[in-house]
Design a protein around this nucleic acid. Structure first.
Length: 773
DNA sequence: TCTTGGAATTTTTTT
DNA sequence: AATTCCAAGA
């Protein structure tokens, strides 16, 4: 989007519509901005902050702006800086979690931690839960640590403390979770660690139990602005009311139709009932959409109107564009991905070209990224992927991070266990368990105990020596960490443990892993300790805090010209000229488990709405007839979401393979379309490992096709690049690429009709007419 | 103590 | 398909 950059100081309000202007100029007191997708809410927020600072003389450090990702916070600061002409120094902008972490660091002692506390991610927390379960005889077979942890997480996000949870939990899982929950809290305290949830819960506790802290922060934050308010949970909501309650200068911006985090405790009621919670709140509605072309908006409105739990709003288009939304039907996930990649490549040329960075491929589950990655890679099309296997989740990265965490927080026994196992140093599980036993008896952390010959009297001499060496290594790194930059520290570490040698000895993907190590070091070098007013911490402390809170999106290089792949959850708040939403199949999107719960189904639909409204000009909805899940082909049926879309809104297409399957193999006496004809022996059932004739529970019959006859002609002379051909439906074109051979031979054809562009066809099925012109 | 091979098991979304 | 878990052997 190109906006003229007026000279700073000028025109802060220029170009705003009346509703936007009202939100920006709203004076003191609570304000709810109901902002539809693409209605310019970010602009409203930044402009409002600029006005607060410039017109009303509010110092930047008295403003708290909560965003959904740290990246969004960074962008907001940049935009403010551009409008203001100077850096809004001292402003608190970030996610609830990073704001919470910052409050805890400043008040660590009050919640039983030091400022160097470790933030446990999902895996760390899971490991700890397992250990607590072992110690308290909760069988990990009967109750998966995962389900226990998620029950505890739910309790935390609802601000239910262990004692109360014990009272409330009635079901068997809850009873067991209650036991673990009760023990988990002292364990975390002893480790000087917090979970993600604690970053919200502990600040609430802090403010509720320490009046002076509450008053201090209330006095500090004269204005609080919260973006994506529809996705706040109980703990976040409480934080908002605690911090803003007295004065009430709370501006929240949200869209009930985009609430997609109910599963992690977000409560739409926070937005639906804002006026009750904040009496006298002003309400502004932003319903003019500046982002999407009318066909996209029409689809969005049609989809979301199926939901009943909503305040109700209709997005009004303000821009032009008449490209119809395309619905594509593919054979399987590979076919789907190949079609999409072909379409992207075709759209790069011709009139009205798109750049790769203009394109986003969205999906419901991370597993779907694979087929797209492969298709993109095979065509040499650059792409970036958000989430999935996160950088910090890779094993080599986790190994090194464990060392860093242990160096920063010597009480982090989980980090100790991970670090001491890499590389092998003759210390196995038995020794570590013995150490843990002795440490617990002596009231020491593992690292402290490792360096205490008196405590280790019972251990083997070799083990004792190895433990002492390890402790000495950590101690040395710790001394360096006091002032050394993190990349130097990392280089020292990698050399000291001969990590490269370890990786090389370990086997596969050595080069990839070494590259990951190198980029970890590089990233650490770039992470200049931007202290933002927080003092007394080492560069390592800053680095770790930031790394623990980095979201998938935060790490992206925004300058790369590459297709972006991510889940629809990750796409919230973003926009792209061309968007593909893939996997519109029953059981996948919406997910099967949403069927029996109307509320969940509505949340899935809101997610669909979020996906649709990411698109500016072009939108594609794709699906496959069968899809591999957990290594098995499963037949799938068109998503119920598509069934409810009014006829004529979609430009229905099929991939060449899906089409030729349909045409070449339709039963001879059947009609020309695929409905109503019962299954014979068919590809879906065979691929799924069932015998023909067996039905699939929950799936309606797909209609009549049968597998292509074995003797399908795969004729004569090979097709050559440059050859002219005619296709029954696409007309004439030129062969651009040839791949595979025999039945699998495929060609890419640049059709003369620009609207069709480049297509990949299976020669054996495409019935191309040759020798024309 | 550590490796290895076979078996078991995949929760959907994330700070 | 891919990762993780576990038991047995080196």
């Amino acid at each position: 989007m190109t906006r003229t950059l007026a000279a700073p100081q000028e025109h802060a309000l220029a170009g705003l519509n009346p509703a936007q202007r009202a939100a920006v100029e709203h004076g003191d007191g609570p304000l709810l901005v109901l902002a539809g997708a693409g209605s310019g809410k970010t602009r409203v927020l930044t402009t409002r902050i600029v006005r607060l600072i410039r017109e009303r003389g509010v110092p930047a450090h008295r403003i708290l702006a909560v965003t959904f990702t740290n990246k969004a916070a960074g962008e907001m600061k940049e935009r403010i800086e551009r409008q203001l002409g100077e850096v809004p120094a001292g402003i608190w902008a970030g996610t609830f979690h990073s704001v919470g972490a910052r409050m805890l660091r400043a008040n660590a002692a009050l919640v039983g931690r030091t400022p160097q506390f470790t933030i446990y991610d999902e895996d760390d927390a899971l490991a700890l839960v397992k250990r607590v379960m072992e110690r308290h005889k909760v069988s990990p077979r009967e109750w998966t640590p995962r389900s226990i942890l998620s029950a505890i997480s739910g309790a935390k996000n609802a601000l239910v403390p262990p004692a109360e949870y014990e009272q409330v939990a009635r079901d068997p899982l809850g009873r067991n979770a209650a036991v673990v929950y009760r023990e988990l809290e002292p364990a975390l305290r002893a480790l000087n660690a917090v979970t993600f949830d604690d970053l919200l819960v502990l600040p609430v506790q802090l403010l509720e139990q320490h009046r002076d802290r509450l008053e201090g922060y209330r006095a500090k934050f004269a204005h609080i602005l919260v973006d994506e308010y529809q996705d706040t949970n109980r703990a976040q909501y409480r934080l908002v009311t605690l911090l803003g309650g007295a004065r009430g200068n709370v501006v929240v911006v949200g869209d009930d139709d985009q609430s997609i985090y109910g599963w992690r405790g977000a409560d739409v009621r926070n937005i639906l009932e804002f006026e009750r919670d904040f009496p006298g709140a002003a309400v502004v509605r932003l319903e003019e959409n500046y982002r999407s072309a009318p066909p996209v908006l029409a689809l969005a409105n049609a989809v979301i109107s199926e939901n009943s739990a909503r305040r109700g709003k209709v997005l009004r288009p303000t821009r032009g564009g008449d490209t119809r939304v395309v619905s594509v039907h593919a054979l399987d996930e590979r076919d789907e991905a190949e079609w999409v990649v072909g379409e992207i490549r075709a759209r790069r040329g011709g009139r009205d070209p798109v750049q790769l960075r203009d394109v986003a491929i969205l999906y419901r589950t991370n597993a779907q990224s694979r087929a797209f990655e492969e298709a993109l890679r095979s065509k040499g099309t650059p792409y970036r992927i958000v989430g999935a296997v996160r950088f910090y989740d890779r094993r080599e990265v986790r190994d090194l991070m464990a060392y860093l965490k242990l160096v920063a927080n010597p009480r982090d026994d989980e980090a100790f266990r991970r670090a001491i196992a890499v590389p092998r140093r003759g210390l196995g599980e038995a020794t570590v368990e013995l150490l843990a036993e002795l440490a617990r008896a002596a009231g020491l952390s593992l690292l402290e105990a490792a360096d205490r010959p008196d405590v280790l009297a019972g251990a083997r001499p070799a083990a004792r020596a190895a433990l002492a060496d390890f402790a000495a290594l950590v101690a040395r790194l710790r001394r360096r960490a006091a002032d050394a930059p993190v990349d130097e520290l990392l280089r020292d570490l990698v050399a000291s443990i001969n990590y490269e040698g370890f990786l090389r000895a370990d086997g596969d993907n050595v080069e990839d892993r070494l590259a990951n190590v190198a980029s970890l070091v590089d990233a650490a070098a770039e992470a200049v300790a931007d202290e933002e007013g927080e003092v007394g911490l080492t560069p390592l402390d800053h680095y770790l805090q930031r790394a623990s809170l980095a979201a998938g999106l935060d790490a992206l290089d925004p300058t790369a010209d590459a297709v972006l792949l991510m889940t629809m959850h990750n796409a919230k708040g973003l926009e792209f000229p061309m968007v593909v939403i893939s996997g519109l199949e029953d059981g996948l999107f919406p997910l099967a488990r949403a069927y029996d719960d109307p509320a969940e189904l509505e949340e899935e639909r809101r997610l669909f709405y979020v996906g649709i409204t990411r698109a500016e000009d072009r939108l594609y909805l794709t699906r496959a007839e069968q899809r591999r899940r957990n290594g098995q082909f499963l037949p799938s049926r068109k998503s119920g979401f598509l069934d409810r879309i009014p006829a004529g809104m979609l430009d229905e297409r099929a991939t060449p393979r899906a089409r030729s399957m349909g045409r070449a193999t339709l039963l001879p006496d059947g009609g020309s379309d695929v409905s109503g004809v019962p299954w014979g022996g068919n590809a879906g059932a065979r691929a799924a490992g069932r015998r023909p004739g067996q039905s699939v529970p929950g799936y309606r019959d797909l209609g009549g096709w049968k597998s292509a006859p074995e003797d399908e002609s795969q004729d004569a002379a090979a097709i050559r690049i440059g050859e002219r051909v005619r296709h029954r439906k696409f007309g004439t074109g030129t062969i651009a690429e040839v791949s595979g051979n025999g039945r699998d031979a495929k060609v890419k054809v640049d059709f003369d009709d620009e609207a069709i562009g480049r297509k990949t066809l299976v020669v054996a099925q495409a019935n191309l007419e040759r020798g024309i012109d």
